[in-house]
């Protein structure tokens, strides 16, 4: 039996919950078909999270590619199909990426599993992002190094804690509805052990009575707690938080059944959501908005 999971027209961090709600009751060894025919847009989070869905299934899932030419071509430009073809049984038109000059894709979807991958990601983002961050997002030239540091630490979360590989992608786009400004978005998604299990693996760690995914996220993201006893650990996410604070950005991390967010004034998200449909690993999104300067 195959269960059909409908992908929403716009696939992003929020609407991905619709996918997970449909997926949650389906046993992992049961075949699923993700129907993306009517999907018209996807954020880096939507695409990287979609790849992690395939990693969680015992039976190779099927995916129907978007029907819209423009959408399929964009998904190809992000490098999505390169990995999707390995993980999914593909249906519909799978577009091939064509070389193009200007692109809003700062970093194509890139697998991250080991330290060398982080070096690769950081090297590539520095080449491409500097001019865009300065010219399009009005971010201080000096801060572009901080952007690469943030990306590095976010990716290392996979290398250090996930226990299996994940994906990263970076893109800029105009966030007309919510913000009316350009944003740069980093998505880092994996289907590994997740924050709760990672912290539980710490030797000698005592769990409180209300220990759950939400509390694990609070510990790791807000208080910088790590599974390692080394006091220098936990600085990566603290660094990410500092960077987004400096540039009025947003950080959100989903793990297990909870999602935590550092919410800037321009957004109306809630700081903590619990009792979400369960999903393995950790899915992170960092959003840095265009800086408004007094002219």
């Amino acid at each position: 039996m195959t269960t059909v999971i409908n992908l929403p027209p716009s696939l992003d961090e929020k609407t991905f919950e619709v996918v997970l709600e449909q997926l949650a009751p389906v046993p992992i060894d049961e075949k699923v078909l993700l129907d993306g025919r009517h999907t018209r847009w996807a954020s880096p989070y939507g695409l990287t999270a979609l790849l992690t869905v395939a990693q969680t299934r015992a039976e190779k899932p099927a995916l129907v590619a978007p029907e819209a030419e423009e959408t399929g071509s964009y998904w190809a430009r992000t490098g999505f199909f390169k990995y999707a073809e390995e993980l999914f049984e593909m249906h519909g038109t799978v577009h091939r990426a064509r070389a193009s000059g200007e692109s809003d894709v700062l970093l194509e979807i890139t697998p991250v599993a080991k330290s060398e991958d982080v070096h690769e990601v950081v090297g590539r983002i520095q080449q491409k992002s500097s001019a865009i961050l300065v010219k399009e997002l009005n971010i201080d030239a000096k801060a572009t190094m901080g952007f690469a540091m943030t990306l590095s630490e976010a990716c290392q979360n996979i290398v250090e804690h996930a226990g299996r590989g994940g994906w990263v992608a970076v893109q800029t786009y105009r966030w007309q509805k919510r913000l009316g400004r350009r944003v740069v978005v980093i998505a880092v998604c994996d289907a590994g052990v997740g924050f709760r299990q990672s912290l539980e693996s710490a030797q000698g760690r005592r769990m409180s009575d209300r220990w759950d995914d939400g509390m694990a996220l609070e510990e790791a993201v807000i208080r910088g707690v790590s599974r390692f006893r080394d006091p220098g650990r936990g600085q990566g996410l603290a660094g990410v938080r500092r960077y987004i604070g400096r540039w009025d950005g947003k950080l959100s991390v989903r793990s297990g059944t909870a999602r935590i967010a550092i919410v800037p004034s321009w957004d109306e998200d809630v700081p903590l959501e619990e009792k979400l449909p369960p999903f393995p690993g950790a899915q992170m999104q960092i959003t840095i908005p265009e800086r408004i300067t007094d002219r």
């Binding site: 950081v122 520095q126 190094m145 690469a148 540091m149 590095s152 630490e153 290392q156 220098g232 600085q235 990566g236 603290a238 660094g239």
Partner: peptide
């Protein structure tokens, strides 16, 4: 040195 991230600064300088 190009970029130095927090993890590397911790391993090299602090340790």
């Amino acid at each position: 040195v190009g970029l130095l991230d927090y993890s590397c600064a911790d391993e090299i300088v602090a340790k």
